[in-house]
Design a protein around this nucleic acid. Structure first.
Lengths: 170, 170
DNA sequence: TCCCGCCGCAACTGATTCCGAAGTTTCTTC
DNA sequence: GAAGAAACTTCGGAATCAGTTGCGGCGGGA
């Protein structure tokens, strides 16, 4: 059994063999996350000064948070600005097990975001495509034929108005 | 007028006074972006080695890309893992100008994502709330009363299955 | 055609940061 | 209460970062 101050692991893995630990964060880790949400390249030393720990301790905590998949430090782009002409949200209605559909969508590289929801759609998937032909092929040949999918609705993006990730922690 | 090799700015600002430059990326900048999409803390030196530039040149390009808002380097978390109990996608039907509604949503701090779309919803907004009461207040008191909003539908997230940002460039 | 200004890149240097290892303290568990 | 593990601190060498300078290519205007 593993028990950490900042990150308490619990056996919460889902269907696929990947890691999905449910976590419990203390105030220091929350502050570290919030600082990195504003600037992913902020130095460990300056973070340490703000949270009152040594530089090495901050480094270890950040590594732990990354390993536990609580956060990821990445460059986020607006797809429309980097050459992807078609982006869309696809709502799916599913009969039976939603998990297998969600897992199948997760496997597709064009799919950037998958959530299971309560509402008139059971699953929402965000897809990033190069052009209309690519989007059409993805929808008709790979998403709609998935077993259990009874209906889909596609919302093509016209403009990305806001894209933020610094919502903090609670 | 400003003309850069990697990033060509054009006066493309929208309604609000913020920066919204349309851009044109060369292959080197695209490669830099893709490397940072996988690891936002990758060192400039190692990037320089892969793209065949000096470390300082890479650093200046990255700074330019950040200034131009082509990308942002941040820590991305799963809200459900950091204490936000309720996350949802809100679909809105709007009569008249969608822009003002989208702008109003953009101003709200609980709203992390806003897109205008083609389909049965005119605008999709992702919201991050602490609990049900918070979500209810946001929907009834601030989103639904927005002028022009004729209907809304809320999809409460049950599970975040996938969240990736390394879709590359084209 | 020549000149001049601008932009991007390379090279350089001091300051800062990163990183691994070892030692200490605190907490858990039996 | 003792043993073990987890988390933190300290520390020094290596690597990286940040700012500046100079060079070369490119485009605009006289």
């Amino acid at each position: 059994m593993t028990t950490i101050r900042g990150v308490a692991n619990a056996a919460g893995s889902g269907g696929n063999g990947a890691k999905r630990p449910s976590v419990n964060l203390d105030d220091v880790s929350k502050t570290i996350i919030e600082l990195l949400q504003h600037d992913g390249r902020k130095s460990y030393a300056s973070i340490a000064q703000e949270v009152g720990l040594s530089e090495a301790a901050v480094r270890q905590r950040v590594q732990r948070l990354l390993d536990a998949d609580v956060m990821q430090i990445v460059a986020v782009t607006d797809p429309l600005q980097v050459g992807f002409q078609r982006q869309a949200m696809v709502g799916l209605r599913v009969s039976g097990d939603m998990t297998s559909v969600a897992d199948a969508l997760t496997e597709m590289e064009e799919v950037s975001y998958v959530v299971t929801t309560a509402g008139s759609f059971d699953v929402l998937a965000e897809v990033v495509c190069e052009n209309d032909a690519h989007l059409l092929e993805l929808l008709t040949s790979r998403i709609r034929p998935l077993p259990g999918v009874t209906a889909t609705e596609t919302f093509v993006y016209l403009k990305l108005n806001k894209q933020l990730y610094n919502w903090g922690t609670r």
